[in-house]
Simulated scan of single mutants.
Amino acid sequence: MSKPFYLHNTMIAAMMLMTGGAAHAGLSFVTTDTATRTEAFNIAGFATLPTGSAVSLGHLDYTGPGAQTVTYTYLGQESGFIDKFYNTLSGAKLLESNAVGTSISSVVSAAGPLSFKFEGDTGKFAINGGHWNEGTSIGLIGTNMLIGSTTYAYVLGYNDSAGTKHLGDWDDFVVGVSAVPEPETYAMLLVGLGLVGFSLSKQRQR
């Protein structure tokens, strides 16, 4: 990698983390399909999302830079279901019996789909970036969503439908996801910014 290329990308990453882009820094939702709600999404603390509204289906990826702590927070689910959320990287899980606001987390450094899955009370499951059993899917509820006193970079909903992945309300299990850089990642970016400043200073002296 050339020095100018490294400096340019380091500066962009640092600016994202230190400005309004920080909420999305490190995470990106990849849409692979679209669907339409056949039932209203209605969980306490959320605005009602009506029948007929569109839903983006897909997977949530880690994009870096460096290592970041990714946190998953349980935000509720439709009553009458016993669904679960597994952080397959750490082995931790979120359950219906957990209090809303319960969080689990792990440090992630590898780019690509985050390691988690939803599992329904029928034994069906949907793996992020992997296999979805028939009738299940992972939908994007929103980005930069303020729920209570916390803003989540991404809010995801699980659909455990008796039909196809395109039918449902995506409120069978809902999680908020955010990423925070590890100290060494901030250090790397600060060093990069220092190199940018040094390089610009040398250019002015020429």
Rank of each mutant, 00 (worst) to 15 (best):
L193I: 10
L167T: 09
A187P: 13
F173E: 01
D169I: 06
D171F: 11
A179R: 04
V191L: 07
H166E: 14
L193T: 03
T164L: 04
K165L: 13
T164Y: 09
L193S: 03
S178G: 11
V191I: 12
V177P: 03
L193A: 07
V177K: 05
V174C: 08
G168R: 07
G194T: 05
P183M: 09
H166W: 12
G168M: 08
G176D: 01
L193Y: 04
T164D: 12
L167Q: 15
L190V: 13
G163P: 13
P181H: 10
D172W: 07
T185L: 05
V191P: 00
D172M: 10
S178L: 12
W170K: 06
V180N: 10
G168E: 03
S178K: 12
Y186E: 10
A179W: 06
M188L: 13
F173L: 11
H166D: 14
A162G: 15
T185D: 04
A187L: 11
D169F: 11
M188I: 03
S178W: 05
G194A: 08
G176E: 01
G192Y: 00
V191N: 10
K165F: 11
G192R: 02
G192E: 02
W170Q: 03
G168V: 12
A162Y: 12
D172R: 05
A162H: 04
E184F: 11
A179V: 02
A162L: 15
L190H: 06
D169L: 06
L190W: 09
E184W: 14
G168F: 06
D171T: 07
A187K: 12
L190I: 13
A162W: 05
F173W: 07
Y186F: 13
L190Q: 13
T164V: 13
T185S: 04
G192H: 02
V191W: 04
